[in-house]
Design a protein around this nucleic acid. Structure first.
Lengths: 139, 139
DNA sequence: GGATTTTTTTGACAATGTCCATTTCTTGAA
DNA sequence: TTCAAGAAATGGACATTGTCAAAAAAATCC
């Protein structure tokens, strides 16, 4: 039994070919959108429905197997790297996303000063800019 | 001449009834979506096209007259409050958004440790949670 | 193996934006 | 004041991203 299958089982999730392929695709394509993941899975399985991709990604994100990040103006992206504290750097023109560690240490900005009665469960930091390739194209 | 008109002129933007109404609507409806703003403008002008709203909001945001924030799973929202350093607290279930000041001081998390060659122009912090009203409904 | 539960598929639908061509308006200058 | 040029607004089509619901298929548990 593969490690991925074991991971699913440990979260009481039925193991299916689609889910294994989706996990695999997320792992091999960091910061991919649902659409890109569907494409990758099609390369592996032949076909998959859009809904299966959304279902699986939703469940995985909910269980903490993967992390969903939703930069402005772009579709949601998914990544393998969970459980640590890192943020993202997103290119405004092409949407390319890379991981960055935060400048201010271990748990930066994780607590708002005034929570306005909210129950806060996550702080998301996104750096916006232009990636090297797009910078070059502009000039 | 109104202050809003002067503001537009100072940015070399032609002054139109639609733009004035949009500025007004953004100012009176903090964190409103494009759709809500269109509604507000219709209350003032009678009608406006969707495209005019998107155009104006886009230009205003680009020029720094307003700020655009794009929480996950919700449409983009716009606000009047620019030039200061504040973040947002977004309810996962109803999308309600409130301003928060950051816990770590003046310019928190504004510089990534490793910029990966990117030219960074903004750092966006979003706190995710559940608002008091939705908390109550759950129970 | 067989029943039950969950997932996957398929198709329709909704929300948020964008693109394009045409019309209308604003601006700046004669 | 009026005119020409440029910019913005309109209206309609379209793309993307995601959700909903019902039926078919597959996985799990006993």
């Amino acid at each position: 039994m593969s490690a991925a299958a074991a991971l699913l089982r440990s979260h009481h999730l039925p193991v299916t070919a689609q889910r294994l392929a989706i996990l695999h695709a997320v792992s091999r394509n960091p910061h991919a959108t649902a659409d890109l993941i569907a494409e990758a899975v099609r390369g592996e399985l032949g076909s998959i429905s859009r809904q299966a991709v959304y279902n699986a990604l939703g469940v995985f994100a909910e269980k903490g197997l993967i992390r969903r990040i939703q930069p402005s103006g772009s579709a949601a992206r998914y990544e393998d790297r969970v459980g640590d504290n890192h943020h993202h750097l997103v290119c405004r023109s092409c949407g390319q996303t890379v991981d960055v560690d935060c400048a201010t240490g271990e748990t930066p900005c994780l607590h708002a000063l005034d929570d306005a009665g909210y129950e806060i469960d996550e702080a998301e930091v996104v750096y916006w800019g232009t990636c090297p390739r797009c910078l070059k194209q502009k000039k």
